[in-house]
């Protein structure tokens, strides 16, 4: 439990938090009503986390929160005290990781607005839980893309997850 934690019972409009973001500890105070997506984008300037709907539907804002894919637009920054977050900026230490490279090689993105959300979902889930191409479709069903029709994305995931082109 972080030091900030103890003070939290008293209701307040300014909330101290301690959170690990892409491996770095951030200790700061956030407005009680600030959305996590806005905290990442506007305070930490991690603008790779995109905001497409602010109602949990499109998936553009998906991040990795303690190992689970989570919508950062329907979470308050105050709620992440003590947690660990990975955003698209933290996905690969250098250059493109294998999943990102597969997106590039398979034309898995067009405008790229939805892409960080897809990457964060895919990097968080266990491929074995989503077998076959049907599994890939299911795994990405909580992320909407308006450009690609998903063809390139599915090919990219097949490549990254090393799955044959059928089934």
């Amino acid at each position: 439990m972080s030091a900030a934690n103890a003070r939290r019972v008293e209701p307040s409009v300014e909330v101290p938090i301690s959170v690990t973001v892409n491996g770095e500890t951030v200790e700061t105070t956030v407005a009680a009503r600030q959305l996590l997506a806005d905290f990442l984008r506007e305070e930490l300037r991690l603008t790779g986390t995109h905001v497409g709907c602010e109602q949990g539907i499109c998936g553009a804002c998906t991040i990795n929160l303690d190992g689970e894919p989570v919508r950062s637009c329907i979470m308050l920054a105050a709620q992440v005290d003590g947690s660990s977050i990975i955003t698209v900026e933290g996905l690969s230490a250098q250059g493109l990781g294998p999943l990102q490279q597969a997106f590039k090689d398979n034309h898995g993105l067009q405008c790229g607005f939805c892409t960080p959300g897809f990457l964060m979902t895919l990097s968080t889930v266990d491929p074995d839980e989503y077998p076959g191409t049907a599994g890939i479709r299911e795994a990405i069903s909580g992320n909407l893309c308006r450009c690609t029709g998903y063809g390139g994305i599915i090919r990219a995931v097949r490549t990254a997850w090393d799955r044959p082109d059928h089934g």
Binding site: R41, L46, T47, V88, D105, L109, G112
Partner: peptide, 23 residues
């Protein structure tokens, strides 16, 4: 031929600059 896209590296690492990203 399949020429890969130059902007993809930025877009895939969160380094894209959409208008809403500007401050």
């Amino acid at each position: 031929s399949h020429v890969t896209r130059s902007q993809d590296d930025a877009l895939l690492t969160g380094a894209g600059t959409y208008v809403g990203d500007l401050r």
